[in-house]
Design a protein around this nucleic acid. Structure first.
Length: 330
DNA sequence: ATGACCACGCATTCAC
DNA sequence: GTGAATGCGTG
DNA sequence: GTCAT
């Protein structure tokens, strides 16, 4: 996913509430720099978006998990007046709107946006005039601002996948994860996972150039056009299918062979699905993360990682009915 | 009343 | 110069 | 901002 959040669709009976809660969330993240309030507002929006019936009072809303005193009050205000005073003020504040805009450039977060605005830089045009204030990542974000706003059609990702696979040694495994793997018709970015049987968590030094070699090969074939960051295990950058294509955000991660399926599961998502599944794992006496599945002893100390040979293994071990990737959207 | 709220790779800046 | 801290983005 | 302690 790119920077643009698109939380709840338009069809729920409470979508108007979700909309203003999401706006408040953005405000708390970008302007107040309070990530926890941001998450609180998003949680509230999420619970409302999946509530089947129209909420008609703050009191009724307050029964839902994630909605407390303050949001209940805001729902009442919205029901009575059709708007929120706090939101009106935010819309009319130029500093706030500027920060929200700059924050859309990848690499510019709340802190950088704040300093830029305090220096009088409030638009993309201003950024163009002050490139000296931007680091490498932010320069790429500016250069491809419009490209990165565009969703990527499924078919284009499929072609990129084939192109990448064609440039990998046969022993390297590749899975494109994220919303693409969940079957979505379009995605915000491309999230590729690779592994190699000779690279394991116990032999981490082996193949330390593997990712860099892959990136170099993909640069040479013209697919990768920009590098945002590149370490031993994670590449972030941009790619372009051909001359007339839009430039796309591409991430590639190198995972140890023995952790590949936990990683594939994790990076396929969705967030909510991962949360559910981790919770189920805990209930079943396991702890699951992006690396391993481990039994939790009565002492609460995790044991040795279980050997996993497929994504399905993970479901089986914790007694969670298998779900195809396309059924993991929520 | 008060602390938790995901963990982590990479780039960059800070503190020494 | 080195290690710690911060910013940012990721599912 | 909300929840759990």
């Amino acid at each position: 996913m790119g920077k643009r959040k698109a939380p709840s669709r338009e069809n729920t009976p409470n979508s108007d509430f979700c909309e203003f809660l999401t706006e408040l969330a953005e405000y708390e993240k970008n302007v107040s720099r309070n990530i926890h309030k941001y998450n609180a507002y998003r949680k509230a929006a999420s619970v409302l978006s999946s509530h089947p019936t129209r909420i008609t009072s703050g009191q009724e809303a307050k029964k839902l998990n994630g909605i407390g005193e303050k949001i209940a009050k805001k729902i009442d205000e919205f029901l009575q007046t059709g708007k929120l005073q706090k939101l009106d003020n935010i819309h009319n504040d130029s500093k706030t709107t500027a920060i929200n805009l700059l924050t859309q450039v990848t690499g510019i977060g709340p802190a950088k946006a704040q300093t830029l605005v305090s220096e009088g830089i409030t638009s993309l045009e201003d950024l163009e005039k002050h490139k000296d204030k931007l680091n490498h990542h932010q320069l790429i974000g500016l250069k491809y601002y419009h490209d990165f706003q565009q969703k990527i059609p499924r078919n284009e990702i499929k072609q990129i996948e084939n192109l990448i696979r064609g440039h990998l040694e046969p022993q390297i495994h590749l899975t494109i994860c994220g919303s693409y793997r969940r079957g979505k018709q379009q995605s915000g970015d491309i999230d590729a996972l690779i592994t190699h049987p000779n690279y394991t968590s116990s032999q981490p030094k082996k193949k330390q150039n593997l990712l860099k070699n892959v990136v170099t090969a993909l640069q040479n074939c013209g697919l990768i056009t920009e590098i945002i960051s590149l370490g031993d295990t994670k590449f972030m950058g941009a790619c372009k299918l051909d001359k007339n294509s839009i430039t796309r955000r591409l991430d590639i991660r190198l995972t140890p062979f023995d952790q590949y399926f936990c990683a594939v599961l994790y990076f396929t998502g969705s967030d909510m699905f991962n949360k559910q599944m981790r919770a189920h794992a805990l209930d079943a006496g396991f702890t699951l993360n992006e690396y391993t599945l481990r039994p939790v002893g009565s002492t609460g100390v995790p044991g040795e990682p279980l050997e996993i040979h497929s994504e399905r293994d993970i479901f089986d071990c914790i007694g969670f009915p298998y779900k195809e990737p396309q059924d993991r959207n929520q």
